[in-house]
Amino acid sequence: MRLSISVVFSSVAGYFLGAEIIDWGIVLLLSVGGYLMVGASNAYNQVLERDLDALMDRTKNRPVASGRMSTTVAMAIAIAFTILGLLTLFYINPQTAMFGGISIFMYVLLYTPLKTKTPLSVFVGAFPGAIPFMLGWVAATNDFGIEPGTLFMIQFFWQFPHFWAIGWFLYDDYKKGGFFMLPTGKRDKGTATQVILYTVWTILISIIPAFGYTGNLFLSPAAAIIVGGLGLFMLYWAIKLYQNRDAKTAKRLMLSSVTYITLLQIVFVVDKFLR
């Protein structure tokens, strides 16, 4: 549920950024449609990974893995959520439904099976994971351009330090299920270096709107300073991970990354309505 709510939050933030006039009916439809799409993706995932989920402490109590729910019921829920979610998003506009469909396809049929094959699964999974922030703008404008593309890139690059931090402190548990989450496959300097690099890229992309290169998506100098400061807080923990290379620091990096993306979206929205 936490994941679903975070996706809805990102989508609504993107809508507020793209809308000239807030239509609360569209906000409701976007929230319901987004929630259903994430629910569908999670349901498909739990069916496909039920045997692996049963091996890991963090997932062994999931409904399908624990045997509390049959795969038939789970698939029925997944299919129903997919149909209802797509119809809800299509009612907003066809492009929103299209991107919602792409998100489910990439998450279920590409990212999920790749998780046990290659660390590149995180790269593939970053595509559907980056769609929600962008989706809100498309829902508001029925158009895809530089603005939603920038929102997509912010959340795309942010996911690498976020998920590598999770992969680091849950390394032993992921290993039980045969998942490859870290770029080098190990909790080493190579992984920590890449965490720092992707954190820096995330910060740089996040402040690009302040320079006037992203169309109608703009960030004031004051807001850019705040976003940059939030980014430096996350970068601090990325550097600490390189120095300490322990699970405790990785967890703090994960928490700082969640704080970063949440406050960034709030700052972007507040900055728009204060201008």
Results as ranks from 00 to 15, higher is better:
94 P>K: 10
267 V>R: 00
217 L>E: 01
20 E>K: 13
11 S>I: 02
200 V>R: 11
230 L>Y: 05
154 I>C: 06
36 L>S: 02
202 T>R: 03
47 V>Q: 04
115 K>Q: 09
227 V>M: 06
119 P>N: 02
22 I>R: 06
13 A>Q: 02
159 Q>M: 11
10 S>N: 14
240 K>V: 04
39 G>F: 00
74 A>E: 09
40 A>P: 02
115 K>F: 09
154 I>E: 02
235 L>W: 03
213 Y>M: 12
195 V>K: 08
173 D>P: 13
54 A>E: 13
124 V>H: 03
29 L>S: 12
185 G>T: 04
165 A>Q: 07
218 F>Y: 14
151 L>D: 07
1 M>V: 15
223 A>G: 04
131 I>V: 15
174 Y>L: 06
107 Y>C: 07
272 K>G: 00
56 M>Y: 11
161 P>H: 10
26 I>S: 04
54 A>Y: 09
136 G>A: 07
128 P>Y: 02
46 Q>H: 14
59 T>M: 09
142 N>E: 11
155 Q>G: 05
45 N>R: 08
57 D>N: 15
184 T>F: 04
237 W>F: 15
220 S>F: 04
27 V>N: 04
28 L>W: 05
208 I>S: 06
52 L>C: 10
207 I>K: 02
171 Y>G: 04
18 G>H: 02
113 P>N: 02
267 V>M: 05
259 T>M: 13
195 V>T: 14
148 P>W: 00
201 W>M: 15
190 G>R: 14
77 I>W: 09
125 G>F: 07
141 T>N: 12
49 E>Y: 11
11 S>W: 00
178 G>L: 11
271 D>C: 07
244 N>Y: 12
140 A>D: 00
179 F>S: 07
5 I>Q: 10
228 G>M: 04
139 A>I: 03
209 P>I: 07
114 L>I: 08
2 R>P: 15
151 L>E: 08
169 F>C: 06
155 Q>P: 09
106 M>P: 09
76 A>E: 11
68 R>S: 13
86 L>P: 00
222 A>Q: 11
133 F>H: 06
182 L>A: 08
22 I>E: 08
10 S>F: 10
252 R>E: 12
138 V>M: 06
91 Y>N: 08
265 Q>I: 01
134 M>S: 09
206 S>G: 08
78 A>M: 07
149 G>L: 11
32 V>S: 08
55 L>H: 10
45 N>D: 13
24 W>C: 02
28 L>S: 13
168 W>M: 05
240 K>L: 12
174 Y>M: 07
68 R>C: 01
44 Y>N: 03
215 G>I: 00
275 R>M: 14
70 S>W: 06
252 R>T: 03
9 F>T: 01
139 A>Y: 00
187 R>Y: 06
68 R>G: 10
102 I>Q: 06
106 M>F: 14
231 G>D: 02
235 L>D: 00
193 T>G: 08
65 A>P: 13
206 S>F: 11
218 F>R: 15
233 F>Q: 13
233 F>E: 14
108 V>G: 06
164 W>T: 12
227 V>L: 08
67 G>L: 12
263 L>C: 01
83 I>S: 03
215 G>V: 00
135 L>K: 05
212 G>T: 03
